[in-house]
Write a protein that binds this DNA or RNA. Sequence first.
RNA 1: GCGGGGGUUGCCGAGCCAGGUCAAAGGCGGGAGACUCAAGAUCUCCUCCCGUAGGGGUUCGAGGGUUCGAAUCCCUCCCCCCGCACCA
Length: 941
Amino acid sequence: MNFAEIERKWQRKWQEDRIFEPEIDKSKRKFFITVPYPYMSGALHIGHGRTFTMGDIIARFKRMQGYNVLFPMAFHVTGTPVLAIADSIANGDEKVIQLYREYVRIYENDEEKVEKIVESFKDPKNIAEYFADKTQQDFKGMGYSIDWRRKFHTAEPIYNKFVEWQFKKLYDLGLIKKGEYPITYSPADGNPVGEDDIEDGDIDKVTIMEFTVIKFEFEDGYLVAATLRPETIFGVTNLWINPDAEYCAVMVNSERWYISKEAAEKLKYQKDNVIVEKCFKGEFFVGKKAKEPATGRTIPILPADFVDPDNATGVVYSVPAHAPYDYQALKDIQNSEEYARKYNLSQEELKSIELIKIIDIEGYNIPAKDICEKMGIVNQKDPKLEEATQIIYKDEFYSGILNNKCGPFAGIKISEIKDEVKRWLINMGRADVFYETSRKAVTRNGHKVIVAVLKDQWFIDYSPKWWKEKGHKLVDQMFFYPTKYKNIMHGIIDWLEKRPCARKRGLGTRFPWNKEWIIESLSDSTIYMAFYTVAHIIREQGIEPEKLTEDFFDLVFLGKGNIQEISEKTGVKEDVLEKMREEFEYWYPNDQRHTSPPHLSNHLAFFIMHHAAIFPEKHWPRAITLNGLMIREGAKISKSKGNAIPLAHVADKYGVDLFRLYCAVNADLESVMDWREKELASLKKRFNLFVSIVEDSLNATEPKTLLPMDRWLLSRFYRLLKESIQDYDSFKIRDAMLNMLFHFVNDIKKYEKRMGSDRRKCVIRKVLEDWLLILSPVMPHICEEYWHRLGHSNYISLQTLPEVKEEYIDDAVEAEMEYVERVIDDIKEIVEIAKIDVKKIYLYTADQWKWDVLRAISDVPPKDAIKEAMKVRKSKETVTLVKQLLKNKIKYIKIDEESVLERDKKYIEKVFNAEVVINSDYDPKNKRKFAIPMKPAIYVE
RNA sequence: GCGGGGGUUGCCGAGCCAGGUCAAAGGCGGGAGACUCAAGAUCUCCUCCCGUAGGGGUUCGAGGGUUCGAAUCCCUCCCCCCGCACCA
């Protein structure tokens, strides 16, 4: 059987008959499910496939529950990545070109064509459109039940108008603000730079560090030292400068600052009115004095090689009691006559510098000194100093307390007072803020990356109390699976602050009030589910983007305004507006959004917040479900590792239904899923077994009368079906599939062992439709195929769930089966251990009084069991029996042991190829008395 | 550091929320057998230790505790993974 062909056949038919293009049907409950549109910077791989597949399985299950299901899809292209790729290709970046050739080869096998297509990627729009097109093809090939009429991509003018509308709504609510913001920036390119623009930016992230710079009075200005620990200012003993580096006098807002030349350059991008006056070597400062701002002491300026002029201001203040580097450097120079001589400093004076301890902390006397001694640090070039600094920083921050040298801050923990001290210094005019990158970084074309402060950055301000309250309310009303994410989401909403929402470059929507800015990609994909409800009508009607005004969307999505006026103003016919309004009202809210945890703290949080801000409560989204990521053979899937399997290859390489089954069955939604070829191979066996069982029964006739084993199998089936439907409904899709495909198939094997394959085929025929139905959300193609081969002319994809035939679920019949199996196991064990050549097996069932005892204690807690049992029969034997029953954990169930054994005698005889005698008087080894309920005594000879 | 999740029998991985039927699903690996000229594929059985009568012993990161009973509940400790923003 050619699975790929079957898969394509049904995909084609589904499309031809437009079965996944739902229309408004007020007689049915609707269900609107979305999965975030994928980002189109390349081809998708199987890791992405997991999330979309699970979304589709849920969509299909909901359809079977009788909902009118809408599952739409679109494509995301906003932002810099696509642009950066286009630029790299245009600039002839071989690495990128090679990568994109690979991507295109997934879909094209003509090398000339590949070249041509990659060539066309110099235009970012072509990248977006090419991959959007191909991804749509991939999704169809995965059997997803998507309504494709509603697709769009985020750089399309009609979508831009929609995003503009969203921003106007936010603006009217006072949530769009403008302000200063530090960003990574390349002065040479005159542009902000993102992760994609920085060399190794994806591997080694560049973050922005906020230094406090403290102004030490020096001659006609200030020597400005940078620190991450402003609270240590009370323990300063001296300043360090690099004698060989260039320093400059810089006018900053009518103050004269002395900082390194590099710092002066950076400062120009962080502050207004920065004028460099003159520059000179650092040795200029050597031996001079400056005044510290906290208590006004005068301290010396000393030279040190370790000071990096290209880090922060190139001026460092020294706190030797608490900073291991400072301690070691000070110790080195105090012991070096050469140092004093070289810089013409007084050895006496150097030696007179004393450590000033300002932090009390348990386990340390003088922290920097203690740790240097403990770690055996020898001099200031010792690499262990870095680790020592980390340890001290952490210990002091969390458990250190400022002592009485620290004025108003004495007695307070560092973690609580750090920002206080900073504010105090800044308010006195003695400190400022300076931003620096977390590491030295250059752009991909080799230009230096610094931190610049943008003056007119646009933000979305998530901090207003009313907004957060609404967000929390929405989350409270929302269903999450896995449920733990609900609390996490509350936490995220509390943590949200301001977020820049526009960038200077990239694809997307222009900022309505300042066209130089482009709305950034996470901010333009928050409420777009609403757009799905009308996108196909906009397209059908050929409504031009300029007609999609604020009034237009206000009417369609919020029901505001006068329809006649808006029709006149926009030129969109009234009935069309009416229809759109109706579509939105019918489909909204978004009943379920399915995605993966990396979206929690960004996309999903904005999705929630923007809905809370813009839409009335009845249109707030209802549920979020998430599935863990997919890894492959234990390793993260990534392009750079080269271990990504394109989604486009799934059909031919593995088979779509098998892939979908793997997604459903190999991990539950909560867990990370490991894609292993070996696991897949064993799953395939199971899949093939399923196929052959179904094939066997296609032409079989159902049995006319049911034997006990038939009833057992039917009981198992409907019991498992019942559980599975519940599991499905609570998103335990794995458990549902385990039941229907593993446990049930195992039961079929057990059945066949006793009843043979001919009868199996007939009995399975009895449940075949129901079985295919429950499996069809996961394996839609193969189930569709068999459904039709069974003579149905409608689509299984559009059927409702099978009915659970409760009348077949029979506890007793299952217990009897288990009972016989257990007896057989016991006999086997005896035979094996005693190494007996079996000729005759004697079975003795328990006496009635033993059953009476079991029944009496069945609902009694173990510790009262004996007491209870004695009421039935007062004897020593009773005590022994109760102990045995408890030890063997025998549960009471009503069955007639003797007649069951009698009935299955032939089967037991067949298993052991020996004669079986039940409750005979012959009992040479006196075994009969050992019988307990559900565990007959056995004698073998 | 904060927040989240883990550590299970050779490996991967269920079980833990709702304690007992858990020596603990399933898969992989290993072993035995069937089919076959053979290999492969497929199928069946076994795979913690001991045991000539269905039994016993020791296990679920470490250590304590609760309980008649703990892989499961509580406490302490050790170790690992993920997220912490302007990046899609």
